[in-house]
Amino acid sequence: MAEEWKPKIIAIICNWCSYAGADLAGGARIQYPPDIRAIRVMCTGRIDPLFIMKAFQDGADGVLVSGCHFGDCHYLEGNYKAAKRMFLVKNVLKNIGLNDKRLRMTFVSASEGAKWAGVVEDVIKTVKELGPSPLKQFEK
């Protein structure tokens, strides 16, 4: 490979905490690698486990789900429900032979810009170590 392999990582993050935290990282100019694309939802509770499966089916090498800290959810408890669902998805991933480290759920508050940068950096590092998603071999 002439060029370094760039993983495709999608982040689905909540509007109130993690998206705001990511904005704060920007305001503070905290640098991190660009190999991540974020989709904003109002709450991680909105995230249907099938969205994660769809992302992997589409060839995502990693998925990051990030919401508010427990007890801090803008909608009281959406993040608890999301966390439960992500455990479930991780189990499914394991059972179908996909390393469950490709899915990460984190909790980043609106005031944790530096933490957001650290999380993204770590997710990218983890996914790079795992290499391209094995599902890619089924692409046309």
């Binding site: 990511a22 904005d23 704060l24 990282a25 920007g26 305001g27 100019r29 905290i30 640098q31 991190y32 690698p33 660009p34 190999d35 694309r37 974020a38 940068a117």
Partner: peptide
Amino acid sequence: ANIREQNSWVHMHDREGATEKAKDS
């Protein structure tokens, strides 16, 4: 499409990477 707080400001030294990310966004 947020190409400032979550892109240009956090990838200030990677013009190519940032531009690719902006296109995706």
